[in-house]
Amino acid sequence: MAEQVPEKVAGEVAISVTGLTKIFGTRKVVDGFDMQVGKGAIYGFLGPNGSGKTTTIRMMCGLLTPDGGAGQCLGLDIVRDSREIKKRVGYMTQKFSLYEDLTIAENLDFTARMFGMKNRKALVAEAVRDLGLEGRAGQLAGTLSGGWKQRLALAACMIHSPDLLLLDEPTAGVDPKARRDFWDEIRKLAARGVTVLVSTHYMDEAVQCDHIAYIAYGKKLIDGAARDIPGQIGLSTYVVTGPDLSELEARLEAEDGTGQVIRFGAELHVSGTDKAALDALAEVERARGTHEWVAKRAGLEEAFIYLMAGAKDNFMLEPVS
């Protein structure tokens, strides 16, 4: 029953939601969330812990009913047609949610059955092979290491070749080699027209995305192409090198109005939105002659640390689109 539901994607948009709102108790956990994801895009979904990423993703695939707003996934209404959406979406949960008392092969087989795949045996064998777990297909999923559980869950949510992948922190705890393989695979899928929405806390992964949406306190603050984001925030950065960086870091942080000071190995990155103030500071520091201050384009990393640090009192920041 792997019947191909006829494509009725509205234009080239895979996800289109407006005003999505979710209230738990009295707390607005997601507040008026808008998002457009083009077909075949890789969309990064970032935000501090508890900002509402998981909740938003759950609303998109019909696992939670929105308290407000509306939207479409693959041209289907997220509330009314959730069963049709589920058939074509691969959702990987943040917390491991396969059966720990089933084996690797049994878990994959169960998922394949649930999606009515015809050539189950072959699909399961292929998935096990791709995972590189041929010898361990009979191992209970609960006895896998954290990273392997993650990789198994990823394989399971892709077993029915979905048109849209919603991945909630898929690479948390996964080693660098496996993460690189994962991103290679994601890019291949995207090239074939599969849309991927992936939440992550890793900057090196955020850079891999075509687009990034940044959410804090349930509100979308930033949405745009990855490389434009530092510019959107208007962040300037100086790279500082020299002796006794820790001492300098402590001194700068104690000073008012310095902005953000982050240590990157043997460098200190000093950033702020007030370019004039930052330039003045650099001038003064250079005059001391102890450290080298070089201006550079603010990177994604500085931008997101800046956003996360500011999230607590940064509700004034209007969403940029």
């Binding site: 695939c61 058939k87 959702y91 949960t93 917390k95 949610s97 649930m114 009515g116 869950a153």
Partner: peptide
């Protein structure tokens, strides 16, 4: 409780 419900109902099961 174990969280497997989330994966289960993410499939088209009724």
């Amino acid at each position: 409780e174990k969280g497997t419900m989330e994966s289960l109902i993410a499939t088209p099961v009724t």
